[in-house]
């Protein structure tokens, strides 16, 4: 038995899937931080990103980088519209109403995608053509490198944005205390719009970059959303690096569980992990206990 190759292969697979979960989780966090809303339509942004990229490449024959950017921009606008036309009307609703509203939006987005693209899966050509690289006997697809690269890029850009730019700092301030932020002159309303824009764009980037590997169809969003949600909770809601680490961890846990334990129960393992964390450390694996005290569980 070639133990080494298997191990490395599971690692590659887990990192690729985990990176996507991480991006979805970061999307949840951005919106949650500013609005305390969990946007259940986050997975649909991923689906839309993938299918939009297919549209720009397949129908309009854009080169891939242009299609990628266009897909991200289009979906960002969808996110913006979602806040502007739907959620802004429901600011003071209960948690339950907000959950239902975002679920309704996700159903609408899914339905719209079904009309536009039908029910068949679509694929994209990989961003760079070429044979998979072999490392320690395990194959690594070039597209997987793109996935990891884009996740790294998003994380770096986001941390620069949040710690260096005025807007980013303002958003963090909204997250800490919206009322205080408003009092100190931060336009909270704009920050909310910005958070939807960013989070939809990040979701779309994830969708566009994963499509060459895993294909994309109209009803893929829900499961990706659920997994990303798990990662967000696992890392502690609102924690960016927590989401990144938890996303990768979740991907790896699934991949190794499928490899060494049972492939049928791999999804259950991730969920069980999530339950344990919620029950015993609700602030998330990487959340701080002190910050958690300020929030309501």
């Amino acid at each position: 038995m070639d133990f080494g190759a298997g191990w490395v292969q599971y690692l590659f697979s887990g990192l690729t899937t985990g990176a996507i979960y991480a991006l979805v989780a970061i999307g949840y966090n951005i919106i949650y931080n500013v609005t305390e809303v969990i946007n259940f339509a986050q997975g649909e942004f991923v689906m839309l990103g993938g299918l939009m990229a297919v549209f720009f490449v397949g129908t309009l024959h854009f080169p891939i980088p242009a299609a990628f950017v266009c897909a991200v921009l289009t979906v960002s606008c969808v996110g913006l519209a979602m806040d502007r036309f739907v959620l802004s009307r429901a600011r003071n609703k209960s948690v339950l109403s907000l959950i239902i509203i975002t679920i309704a939006v996700s159903i609408l987005l899914k339905g719209a995608a079904m009309f536009e693209w039908g029910k068949d899966p679509y694929t994209l050509p990989p961003f760079t053509q070429g044979e998979p690289i072999t490392i320690f006997g395990a194959a690594l697809q070039l597209q997987a490198l793109w996935v990891l690269g884009i996740v790294a890029l998003v994380v770096v850009l986001l941390s620069i944005f949040f710690h260096r730019s005025m807007y980013g700092k303002a958003m963090l301030a909204c997250a800490d205390n919206p009322r205080a932020a408003r009092l100190s002159g931060i336009p909270v309303r704009q920050m909310v719009l910005l958070s939807f824009l960013l989070s939809a764009g990040i979701g779309a980037a994830a969708g566009a970059v994963i499509t060459p590997i895993s294909l994309m169809e109209y009803d893929r969003g829900a499961l990706l959303g659920l997994k990303g949600f798990g990662a967000a909770a696992l890392g502690g809601l609102g924690q960016f690096f927590g989401a990144l680490a938890a996303g990768l961890f979740l991907g790896l846990a699934e991949s190794f569980c499928a490899g060494y334990l049972s492939s049928g129960y791999k999804d259950a393992v991730a969920l069980l992990l999530l339950l344990m964390v919620l029950f015993f450390k609700p602030e998330g694996l990487f959340g701080s206990r002190e910050a958690a005290k300020l929030k309501r569980f």
Binding site: V95, I99, L226, F229, L272, L275, L278
Partner: peptide, 17 residues
């Protein structure tokens, strides 16, 4: 012991299991 989103999440996770 959890509330709001967290309770929703926990029950959702249990349901999926």
């Amino acid at each position: 012991r959890l509330k709001g989103h967290y309770l929703a999440m926990a029950t959702l996770g249990f349901g999926e299991i």
